[in-house]
């Protein structure tokens, strides 16, 4: 039951994008079309889960025993950058189909704060390995859900008469605000 609450909490209540404000640059940048948004969402789930495992292991088996917790930021960001590079090379060699759908989003993910944010939150909440895995997966799934829903709204927005000054990012942010308001409605479900 606790785990179910954790999943619902991470996807809806504390949505990475709309409640914790992580990963907003790709949120505005690649949410103009539904299929690119879905690709970005999948790539983030993939990398965020791998990165969470890697950084969790690095934190508890390397940094803590050596008393180097203050290097957390540096180590995590380097691990994520290296991981993204590796994943890219691996996908290129092994799975052309997956590379073609995820490949172009991978370099962008290095500077996606959602990935580093989830990795840091895992440590901050002092989660054990299994809980961390579930938390990271559902947080990343929450990101994917939000960006796909948002892309759907933005495709409609193209057909509406928006005042010239509000076109582009301005109206996108206001729309995100309305979506965030909708997600705020979930707040009563979980503590």
């Amino acid at each position: 039951m606790d785990l179910l609450l954790l999943v619902i909490g991470a996807i809806f209540v504390n949505n990475v994008l709309l409640a914790q404000y992580l990963g907003n640059c790709p949120f505005c940048g690649v949410s103009k079309k539904l299929d690119t948004a879905a690709g970005m969402g999948l790539a983030v789930i993939f990398v965020a889960v791998l990165a969470s495992v890697l950084t969790w292991v690095a934190h508890y088996f390397v940094l803590v025993p050596l008393d180097l917790e203050y290097l957390q930021t540096l180590v995590f960001v380097l691990l994520i950058a290296a991981l993204v590079q590796l994943v890219e090379i691996f996908l290129k060699k092994k799975s052309q189909a997956l590379y073609r759908s995820l490949g172009i989003y991978l370099p962008l993910i290095t500077t996606n704060c959602a990935v580093l944010g989830i990795a840091l939150l895992n440590i901050k909440h002092e989660l054990d390995f299994a809980t961390m895995l579930i938390y990271a997966t559902s947080s990343a799934a929450g990101f994917a859900l939000a960006i796909v829903l948002f892309a759907g709204v933005r495709e409609r927005l193209l057909l509406s008469p928006v005042p010239p000054a509000m076109r582009g990012t301005a109206i996108a942010l206001v729309t995100a605000g309305v979506m965030s308001l909708a997600f705020l409605g979930f707040a009563g479900m979980v503590e």
């Binding site: 709309l18 409640a19 404000y21 005042p163 010239p164 000054a165 509000m166 076109r167 990012t169 301005a170 109206i171 996108a172 942010l173 206001v174 729309t175 995100a176 605000g177 309305v178 965030s180 308001l181 997600f183 705020l184």
Partner: peptide
Amino acid sequence: APGAFLCLGLLLGVMN
């Protein structure tokens, strides 16, 4: 959270 998005979006609109 919604206020943050709305505020930034409207400010951007004013600047545009």
